[in-house]
């Protein structure tokens, strides 16, 4: 997994649902977010986008469309698997869950991300003191 340093240029759709300006995801970080949402257990695609909104208090928005190709890519790389089931609202839905490979990938991505963030914080903190 690659964590990019530049912000995604993709246009983000802000619905009336979002009351304030959300942060765009950094390129490549979508994968970590998706793996993280599956850490607790299987979810369907809509559930994942709900969870992200809930967990971040709508600070972070996921382009709903981008979610599905990303899930398919993770599936291709063997980090998640999927199967059809029924949602708690009684609708057919495709549920994704982490594979052992996915769990390892998540752990290593989180680690990399944390080191990145702390390094960035140090750099930015130092700059502001200068």
């Amino acid at each position: 997994m690659i964590i990019g340093l530049t912000a995604a240029p993709a246009p983000t759709t802000y619905g009336p649902y979002m009351s304030r300006q959300s942060l765009e995801l950094l390129k490549g970080t979508l994968d970590i977010v998706l793996l993280k949402t599956l850490e607790a257990g299987p979810r369907h695609g809509y559930g994942i986008s709900r969870w992200v909104r809930d967990a971040t208090g709508e600070d972070l928005s996921i382009d709903e469309g981008a979610l599905y190709p990303a899930l398919r890519r993770l599936e291709k790389r063997g980090f998640v698997e999927s199967e059809w089931g029924v949602s708690d609202t009684g609708r057919d839905a495709k549920f994704y869950h982490l594979t052992p490979d996915g769990e390892r990938e998540l752990a290593s991505a989180v680690d990399t991300w944390e080191r990145y963030v702390s390094a960035m914080s140090r750099v930015l903190g130092a700059a502001s003191r200068a």
Binding site: R43, W84, D92
Partner: peptide, 13 residues
């Protein structure tokens, strides 16, 4: 939370 959906029946196999 909708984790519970994972425990839904798997009628489609």
């Amino acid at each position: 939370m909708i984790d519970d959906a994972a425990r839904g029946s798997r009628r489609t196999g």
